[in-house]
């Protein structure tokens, strides 16, 4: 509430900053002089979570608390359960045991629409309807806020415009999704999630299939959502160096358990890499960001 009026960012695609290092290392300082986190305690919490398909447990007895206003990266080899953890946190998957708490209350105690008003998920399975435009996609993000007759009202339009602008796809609003590049399309999906107007954003491998430039743009956007809009982001990342560079906290999973958890410097180490990914690597300090950078041996 005390926040000075947040200026919507100038068209972000116009001038992506070339050296985001200063911004991202000063991230904690920036969020400190912004509004204090709205609710004390973790915004999203997994307590003793077990999730499985058929007989096998994908996650077993996993606990994780996500602090508000932070970016958390989930990393791990294929089949480590990181995507399952993300979808379970978003109530898409039901846990076999344990529970997920949103603002301290079990997910089951919220209605599904109440959850969707506080937590947006962008899964990998997202399908763009044939011929849909960016605006038509983003409009779907308003579903949890719609009234009983499901008509779009003025505040829905306003939320959509803000989401389009924040994700940097305002100029593409009336373009068809199938005419966009992979990076633009991914931003359109992010705009759809932003239109939900949630504090929490869960992303499943948002940078996969994107070229380097679009990967950087997307990660910068995630940083801005945290710094300028006090959002809490949890994302599954394939690229460990990306996780080390952009996340406040890295959680490494293997076999459905958390092997290492902490700030990048504590998690991206030669020992953890060996244990989690079975990779022999040397970890050096990234000369640009000062974050850890791993090089496979």
């Amino acid at each position: 509430m005390t926040a000075s009026t947040p200026r919507p960012p100038t068209p972000p695609s116009a001038a992506p900053s070339i050296a985001p290092s200063a911004a991202s290392s000063a991230a904690s300082a920036v969020s400190a002089d912004g509004a204090p986190p709205p609710a004390p305690g973790p915004s999203l919490e997994a307590v003793d979570l077990s999730v499985g398909y058929r007989r096998d447990d994908v996650l077993s007895g996993l606990s994780l608390a996500v602090e508000p206003g932070t970016v958390t990266a989930l990393v791990g080899p294929n089949g480590s359960g990181k995507s399952t953890l993300l979808t379970t946190l978003a109530r898409v998957q039901r846990p076999r045991a344990g529970e997920v708490r949103l603002r301290g209350r079990a997910l089951g105690d919220w209605s599904s629409v109440e959850v969707a008003r506080q937590l947006a998920l962008l899964p990998q399975s997202a399908v763009a309807p044939a011929g849909a435009t960016v605006r038509e996609l983003v409009e779907q993000g308003r579903y949890p806020q719609l009234g009983p007759w499901a008509m779009l009202r003025r505040r829905d339009d306003a939320a959509m415009e803000r989401a389009l602008s924040l994700a940097g796809v305002g100029a593409l609003a009336d373009r068809r999704l199938d005419s966009l590049s992979g990076g633009e399309r991914q931003r359109a999906w992010i705009a759809m999630a932003l239109a939900q107007e949630t504090d929490l954003l869960l992303l499943d491998e948002p940078t996969t299939y994107l070229d380097v430039r679009h990967q950087i743009d997307l990660m910068d956007l995630v940083g801005r959502l945290r710094d300028e809009h006090a959002m809490t982001v949890v994302m599954v990342l394939h690229d460990l160096n990306q996780a080390a560079r952009y996340a406040d906290r890295v959680v490494a999973l293997r076999g459905g358990r958390i092997i290492a958890d902490g700030p990048p410097a504590a998690v991206v180490t030669a020992e953890v890499l060996r244990e989690v990914f079975e990779v022999e690597a040397r970890v050096v300090e990234d000369p640009v960001t000062g974050r850890p950078l791993f090089l496979a041996l």
Partner: peptide, 22 residues
């Protein structure tokens, strides 16, 4: 439900060419 602060901001005019506003 706490609304993120950016949702209270002014509404940007994003669309340059609105050929067919829905």
């Amino acid at each position: 439900i706490t609304i993120p602060k950016w949702t209270d901001g002014p509404v940007p005019r994003t669309t340059t060419a609105r050929r067919r506003p829905p």
